[in-house]
């Protein structure tokens, strides 16, 4: 939508701000509008005005005005059947390409797609986000689209998942102990069992290079994951293959695991080569 130059900006401090040093340059209306967009997540994709008001902590009339403008700009889409909004394709025009271009996932996709096709699994590049595994790149096999409902940006726990254990294996020991103490508090009830699974996973990575987990994160889900890079390489990354347990018999897991280890090594080598090329180009 064209930018109007006649109207003046709404500016000034947030109402009820506690800070004594008021940030006069902060555009409150922009922050509120962005909170409307931020109310939508990978997990919460459809929201009504009332849902948004609650999640964004804004009055409903304010939300209604913002959603109307955001639909007009292509940033939200309204489904009249369900009377809810979802994020529109215009959100991708807000700098996504410029930022995602810096990502490590570049070059990994062809490997993941072959993995997905060869084994009929959900293949992913994963990283760590605090105490969770975050999916950075995801590929599904063309003939089995309904495998796992995990998309780019989806999070699963570090504890008890093959991906989580593969990532934990690449976190320096001191940091890992610190992280485990957090996880112990978070998973208080099941910690005894989870800790045993984590230890077994770390041991498995040490011996065969990959971690596997049957019924780990969620009943009926099987996963295999291999870490990438040197132990101290930051940030920790891993590639994984997973799916419903009835599609993934136990004797398939070592085969997938070995492929993951080999692919992880190739990906790491390619990334290192690319980095070297870039440095040479820049110098």
């Amino acid at each position: 939508m064209p930018v109007s130059r006649q109207n003046d900006d709404t500016e000034g401090p947030a109402p009820g701000t506690k800070s004594e040093t008021v940030d006069r340059a902060f555009v409150v209306a922009l922050a509120k509008g962005l909170r409307v967009l931020e109310a939508f997540t990978v997990e919460r994709r459809w929201l009504s005005n009332a849902n948004i008001a609650e999640r964004a902590r804004l009055p409903k009339p304010t939300v209604t005005r913002f959603t109307k403008a955001l639909v007009a700009g292509g940033y939200l889409s309204f489904d009249s059947g369900r009377r809810q909004y979802c994020l529109g394709t215009g959100v991708l025009a807000l700098g996504y390409a410029g930022r995602v271009g810096n990502n490590v996932s570049e070059g990994v996709r062809p490997y993941l797609q072959r993995l997905a096709d060869d084994f009929g699994v959900h293949a992913a590049l994963v990283g760590r986000d605090k105490t969770n595994v975050i999916h950075l790149e995801v590929c599904r096999s063309a003939d089995r689209l309904t495998t796992l409902q995990l998309d780019i940006g989806s999070r699963i726990p570090l504890a008890g998942t093959a991906s989580g254990h593969a990532l934990l294996s690449r976190i320096p020991e001191q940091e890992r102990d610190y992280l485990l103490s957090y996880l112990a508090a978070r998973h208080e009830k099941h910690w005894e069992q989870l800790e045993a699974e984590i230890r077994a996973g770390l041991k498995q990575v040490e011996t065969v290079g990959y971690a596997s987990s049957v019924h780990g994160w969620q009943a009926g889900i099987t996963g295999v994951a291999a870490p990438g890079g040197a132990r101290e390489a930051a940030p920790a990354l891993a590639i994984s293959g997973g799916g419903p347990s009835h599609y993934l018999p136990a004797d398939r897991m070592p085969m997938i695991g070995e492929r993951l280890v080999a692919d992880a090594a190739r990906i790491v080598a390619e990334l290192a080569q690319k980095r070297a090329d870039r440095q040479r180009d820049e110098s």
């Binding site: 939508m1 930018v3 109007s4 109207n7 003046d8 900006d9 709404t10 500016e11 000034g12 109402p15 555009v27 409150v28 209306a29 922009l30 509120k32 509008g33 962005l34 009055p59 009339p61 304010t62 005005r65 913002f66 403008a69 955001l70 700009g73």
Partner: peptide
């Protein structure tokens, strides 16, 4: 901050 001005601010941002 809840009127038309705020819509303009959001669009400009």
């Amino acid at each position: 901050a809840d009127g038309q001005d705020s819509i303009v601010s959001l669009e400009r941002g």
